[in-house]
Structure formats: C-alpha cells, structure tokens
Design a protein around this nucleic acid. Structure first.
Lengths: 254, 254
DNA sequence: CAGTGGTCTAGACCACTGA
DNA sequence: CAGTGGTCTAGACCACTGA
C-alpha cells in the first residue's frame, strides 16, 4: 500500500524514509516517541533485524535516539555558541574571567566535573608543536571534562612544557583567576597569538562514553596552539566537542 | 581463546575491538583489505549478522570502508587545509585570484564540476540573514560542487539579494577574476567583514550521495556571512564539507 | 510485570567485483 | 565464476524501563 515502485530501494530504507518524512513534517516533534521495533515489525510485516536497520538509519543521521527499555525518540538540538576569537581576547581573561565562561549565557553554568593534572613525556606530536628538542621531555598535562546542565559536552587536554610551569598554579587543579593564560602572562609568557585547527569525525568508544554520545553524533576536534610575542608555542590544547551541543563562530575582517 | 573475560561485552564489540587494535598497531595499513564477513564468521564462529555488526562499528568510526563484491578496507585520511582568514583577505581576491585557490597546493586543482545559478524567493532564514524586508524577496542562488582529483569534497550554495546583483557577472556561471567578492566591490559593496559559523552532523541521504561519502563520515557545515563597511550583509554562503577531506584553520591575535 | 530495545543464530537469495 | 558484501527471515533470550 505504501510502495507502488517497491522495486529497487531496500525495505529498511523505505521504512526509514517514511519515518524521516513524518519527522520533518512535524508528525513527530522533538522528544516524541517514534514507532519502535515491535511496531514496525507488525506495521510493515518485517523481521526484527529489518525494523532495527530502519531505525538505525535514523539514529545514524542524528534524527532519532534509542533509550533501552523505553523506546525510540526524536532528538532535539539546541547548541552552545562558542565565539572563537573574542573568548581568547586578552581583555577577557586578563580581567580574571575564565575563557570558558564566554561560551554560555549568564543563566547557565559550564562546570568542570573531572580534572586530572599530571606530568608525562611529551611524545612526538606534542614535542613538535611545542618545539621541544626531544619527545621524552616532560610536559604538564591538564585533562578536564566540562558539563552543562548535567550533560557532558566537551573534553579538553592541555599540554605545557613542564620546565616552564613547574611549581606554579598551572600544575594545580584550580589555576586561579583568568586561568592558565593569566598565569603564563605572570611568567612573562603571555600568549598573544592563537591558531585553531578544526576537524570532525565519528567518536572513538572512549569518547562516546565520556561524552555520553548518541549513535550518529560526530565529535568536533579543536587543536589550539598558543604563541607568545617571541613566536614560542607555550600551550597545545586539544578539545573534543559533542557536535550536537556546539556551534563554533569566527568573526574576522577581510 | 581470545576472551578470558568474555562476560559483559557483546561479541560484535569484542571482534570490532580486535580489528581496531590491529589497525592501530599497523597490522592492517591504510588501503589494506580487512577480514570480511565470511572470514569473521569462521574465525569467530558467529552468524553473518554478528560479523556485519562488528564491521559496521568500524565503518561508523570511519576506520573502514566496504566495497561491495570486493571486501572491507582500511580507510586513509589526507585532508585539505582550509585557512579560514587569509583566504578571504582583500589582498587575495583583490588581486584576481579565487578564494578557493587558497585551499590547495599549487600542484593540485580544486575545480567546479556542477554549477547552477538561479533566482528564487529568499525564504525566512535567508531573508533574516540578508536583512530583507520580506521572505518572498528574490535572491540569486549560486549552487556549486567542488571536486579535487575527481573526488567531490565540497558543496557550496551562495545567496545574494537579486535586486543588487541583477544583470552583473554574479548571475553568470563564471563570475570573472576575483569572483563574487571582486564584483561586489565594483558595485560599491566590498565585503570587509566575515562571520563563519561551523557545525557538524551526519549527512542527509542527498549530501551523502552528492559527496560520495562513506558510511561513518560526518559533514562539516560552514555558514558564512559577508558584511560591508556600512554593516550590511551582502552574501550568505552555506558550505557542506566532506569531513574526511578537510582541516579548517583559524589564526588570530589575543 | 508487560513492553522495550539489544544481541544473536542459522539459514536464504541477490547484485556486484575481479581474476 | 568463485567470492564478496547487502538484504532479509523467523525465531530466541537478555537486561532494562516505567507504570
């Protein structure tokens, strides 16, 4: 009854198409429950695996999410706006505010719920970026997870030369007002230039776990290098963002 | 023999784990053939659907790609570097070069293989960005696909007020030296400020088709607004990038 | 405790690839 | 033409959710 041209397109695709159309038409609103495996099995007279395959198409597209034991639901998307350039302006962190505070409206709070500060050998990649002479040289590794409204949205791992930050607040969990950049400035290494590199890919199992990601949700990777007036890289910050939670914004002149 | 703690983790995940480890260890190099469905069925003594599920984990992570009738292969990733800020500097397109030419090394060519220029009603979203008084106002729509080494990497749709660009080269497939921005400058609407917004998500079926994307490959969306000295938005350019083909770079000062 | 999604089996048939 | 991945069935059992 639904397919005059049932010819070439696989069953599971046709079922996914119908559900997708219904979602876009508003028949199912964000948060609504979709027909589940059992519903599709009887409605379309297909096997469980075929019904699952149809639903997994929508999950891979980021349109639906499954909650075990409860059902399959239409996803919603209300992103944070991360303004790449003003958040790193000296006037912002120089006045004692956190770089991260720029990303959220004042009525919401982006908080760190996991933090780990260690010292470890740099490794080849980090040594190259920070201009260390040898991959075994120690670096300070600041690893954090940020949570918004109880939802993890971002992982951040920051690398700084251990020789530079040894014994400073940068080695403490709480780096104090203005954060790492304010402390670097006090050490005479104020960052004046930044480079951000952006990629996107599907998460690893560990990332998916730590960010509590749904199936079809990619991560955005940002690698930022902070450079001093003398052209020396003093920090590499590698961030992993839940792509369903973020829009990045860059403003600049021609 | 492979699982002392076979307890909680599903079979398909354990198989995927082993393959992933082997890929990361270099046992399988980029382009190599991986064990296929039939191999996994006999090696691990599982049903076809379970072997498929294991392979689909790796495909979703972007680590492997299936070629029907041939096998499953390790994917490779060699991205283009898109330098967000210098490519839009007036000195670049002002001297007659294309904005896009900045994205590739001189020995490779990023070429347009599909182009369509039409006029259509703006619609609510575009009208809002371009500051049009009514969503029915006509806009010039320039839709292009870019190909690198025969591989489609980017879709671009550009919107400009029809009242402004009517009868100019901007309505032609070839906009001439320096492209749209050089023509806007000649009209007294030189863009001096840009805003780029970046998101990432899984592709729609159409995007997946036009960019010839593999299973677990997200797209990166860039929405750029070009603004004149007078603060008027003259262009909205919406781009859809194959995330496996691009790294974005933004350089700026504190 | 009824219903849900998650995992898994042992088969079948198909279109496609590449030697 | 042998081998491959893609689709599909008709069952089964499990852990989890929420009334």
């Amino acid at each position: 009854m639904t397919d005059p041209d049932s010819g070439r397109r696989p069953k599971y695709q046709r079922i996914a198409d119908e559900l997708r159309t219904a979602i876009q038409a508003g028949t199912f609103a964000p948060g609504d429950r979709l027909p589940g495996e059992n519903d599709l099995m009887s409605t379309y007279d297909v096997a469980r695996m075929t019904a699952r395959q149809a639903l997994s198409v929508l999950r891979n597209e980021g349109l639906a999410e499954a909650r075990k034991g409860a059902g399959v639901f239409v996803r919603s998307f209300r992103p944070l706006r991360r303004r790449g350039i003003p958040r790193l302006a000296h006037g912002h962190w120089g006045s004692g505010r956190s770089v991260w505070s720029a990303d959220v409206a004042e009525d919401r709070a982006l908080v760190v719920d996991q933090i780990e500060v260690t010292t470890a050998p740099a490794g080849a990649r980090v040594a190259r970026v920070l201009g260390l002479s040898c991959p075994d040289e120690p670096v300070c590794v600041r690893s954090r997870r940020f949570v918004l409204d109880d939802r993890p949205v971002l992982l951040s791992v920051s690398y700084l030369p251990a020789a530079l930050v040894e014994g400073t607040a940068i080695m403490e969990p709480d780096t104090g007002p203005g954060g790492t950049y304010a402390r670097l400035a006090e050490l005479g290494r104020r960052p004046v230039h930044f480079r951000e590199e952006i990629r996107s890919r599907m998460p690893t199992a560990e990332e998916s776990d730590r960010l509590a990601l749904e199936f079809g949700t990619p991560v955005i990777l940002i690698g930022r290098t902070a450079v001093t007036e003398q052209g020396v890289a003093v920090e590499l910050n590698e961030m992993t963002l839940d792509s369903a939670s973020y829009v990045l914004e860059y403003d600049f002149d021609a």
